[in-house]
Write a protein that binds this DNA or RNA. Sequence first.
DNA 1: TATGAATGAGCTTTCATTCAT
DNA 2: TATGAATGAAAGCTCATTCAT
Lengths: 225, 225, 225, 225
Amino acid sequence: MASDNISDSPQVVRTGKRAQQARETREKILKAAVKVFAEDGFSGGRIDRISKEADSNDRMIYYYFGNKEKLFLEVLESIYLAFNEAERRLDLDLSDPVEALKGIVRFTFAYYLAHPEFVAILNDENLHRGRHSRQSNNIQNISGDIQSNLKPVFEEGQKRGLFRPDVSVRNLYLTISALTYFYCSNQHTLTIFMNQDFKSPEFQSQWLNHIIDVTLNSVMIRGES
Amino acid sequence: MASDNISDSPQVVRTGKRAQQARETREKILKAAVKVFAEDGFSGGRIDRISKEADSNDRMIYYYFGNKEKLFLEVLESIYLAFNEAERRLDLDLSDPVEALKGIVRFTFAYYLAHPEFVAILNDENLHRGRHSRQSNNIQNISGDIQSNLKPVFEEGQKRGLFRPDVSVRNLYLTISALTYFYCSNQHTLTIFMNQDFKSPEFQSQWLNHIIDVTLNSVMIRGES
Amino acid sequence: MASDNISDSPQVVRTGKRAQQARETREKILKAAVKVFAEDGFSGGRIDRISKEADSNDRMIYYYFGNKEKLFLEVLESIYLAFNEAERRLDLDLSDPVEALKGIVRFTFAYYLAHPEFVAILNDENLHRGRHSRQSNNIQNISGDIQSNLKPVFEEGQKRGLFRPDVSVRNLYLTISALTYFYCSNQHTLTIFMNQDFKSPEFQSQWLNHIIDVTLNSVMIRGES
Amino acid sequence: MASDNISDSPQVVRTGKRAQQARETREKILKAAVKVFAEDGFSGGRIDRISKEADSNDRMIYYYFGNKEKLFLEVLESIYLAFNEAERRLDLDLSDPVEALKGIVRFTFAYYLAHPEFVAILNDENLHRGRHSRQSNNIQNISGDIQSNLKPVFEEGQKRGLFRPDVSVRNLYLTISALTYFYCSNQHTLTIFMNQDFKSPEFQSQWLNHIIDVTLNSVMIRGES
DNA sequence: TATGAATGAGCTTTCATTCAT
DNA sequence: TATGAATGAAAGCTCATTCAT
């Protein structure tokens, strides 16, 4: 009992409160950084805009993250992690590989549409030739199993004689990624050059139908579908 | 004669020479700007790095281009133009639509591979939500006929009953773009996350085969190919 | 007995322990501050380097010393005090004034060599025109009797007709100080400019011999030595 | 004639004017830097105080000197150079070595008194363990012949049997330096601790007499003076 | 007593840009 | 046409210091 009191002692509680607040501050900064870096890239993203957006001050960014580069690294980690978690939440029915595959395409496209910051930051990271990702061991671990959703589905489909045995999971993965990602990443220039509103739900949905069709046609055994 | 000489006077000659030199200086700066903006983006690209790279000096950039923004605009124009010109040089045999379509895929992929600066700058422009492209009338004109190669080929194939009538040129265009562009634009993060060297000729060529397959499967009428 | 125990109660004991710990923390900080200020000067010395060097944290410095300025003041006091104490430990034989004088030269030189932090901090204090020393009454008291060792020795030598009556203790004191201090305080630039290693024991010992010679020659009555 | 005009052409003249102004700006900054670094040291010296003192702006310091460190290096070089030049202007009469030696002591003391910035900056450089001087080849060249004034005088005196053959020029040089430099470099703490105004002309002059006496006694052959 | 969290002012440095010739 | 010199604004970052528990 007494020991209970001690474990609930003001000191511990106090520490808890402060630590909680601190975690929140850190989180607010990280969130603001995601937003700002997504909008302006690493070079264009301003420390003081981030701190203002986070209702904090410049100094805290250095307190929690060291410098701009390290902050960007954590931003990268956090968006990869969020993507992974979303993927993990995808519940696929392996008993219907075709439908499951469609589900993956739908999910991927929806995720990119809903997370322009993911696309923007990934683009910026590629502009810098993956410089930050290469630095971080965390990042390489985070995305270790990039094909973990697709692989069982595709292999199950192959086993059942639905999907072509001569297509690799890797190429299928890249195909789906390309068809979904490109639409989002290049929407602004495409909107201008094709005079077509890539943000309109109608256009998005017809594109989704198209890429599901493309994807299936690329793996289905002829005469099966 | 003497008066002829005068009309060919040093001044005029000099002007001619100078104009030539001027054009060269301008060209050198533009080329350097393409390089620097491709490497560091608009925000990260430094005026003085460009002028050094061009063996010129900062002041000349302002003399010829006004400011950084306008310089970037010209850079955009120049890379779009170069792409268009390359496309125009493509000589397609309409009498064999399937082969012609393959040729377009090959060309597009090869162009992106050979012109990382095109991909990088387009990415950066998308990061900035097409801000610069939207400003320039030139740019919109340049890329007015973005599907000019593909359209006749595809329509010829449809006419001949080779290609599906329910696929739009637009979607086909986007499909090819996505499959070729994504490989290049995201190669750095993909290289890290998939532990696969996207620069290796072998991997590139197997990907090319794959996307030709995907493209054809997406348009060919079943049982025809 | 029991009450005795109470007066020796945990609280008191704890206080005693804590007070002891507190004194130790304070001492560790002071020691670290001496080191850091000696290496980087007042302006260059960083609070957080001091706290890290002391295995403590910034806040403690403010708790114990108020601010950077006051900490520096205590540092000054502590090094003056240490010098004074070392001087006081010098046991001179007044019956042999010449030997005693030599002893003072030896001691002074040895002290500066062994205490580069003393020299460095004194230099820094002079850079700031004695700003801190002037503020502190303590400091002026500490070094009230700066010539307390030298005076009796020199006066004894004068009384015995060994030392010139026309030389002042003050000038003799400054002479010894100059000859010993300068060697240490300027050793780094001298090492560079004279291409001579001022840290080498041989060079130090020949210099000691030289300055003993110079000192004696400056006070001995001609024909006496 | 025509060619004369060309060499006097506006272009050259114009360039000349601007270049002249530029040199002046640079010089003003350097002078201001000497002052500020002398007063506050390297760490304490503020870039913006220097630029204000120079009636210029921060940016120009970076334009002309690169960064604070390099500016300090040039400051060091400039004060060493000034000292060397002053030394070179000293016209010594070798036919009277004793008087010449006195002249050197007088000059050295007078120089340090007149140039507190030299003493202060040298002190600061020693605080940083000669870090900057070691970096610069220029500096090592500048002060290559640090004993060039003293050497001929002393050797002439030795040749004539006036000066002791067992004293090295090097030690004599250090002796004079120590006796003159210390007075200046440590005047602020000494003024406080000895309760003696080291700035007063009387005290300075009695010290000069004393150190001339000390110096001569350290080299004169007994019975000669 | 001790310590993480927070802060504002100010530091060095860089940037795009303009001036003057 | 070309170029060194100059500039103000703002960038990233560090500093000594204080708050809150």
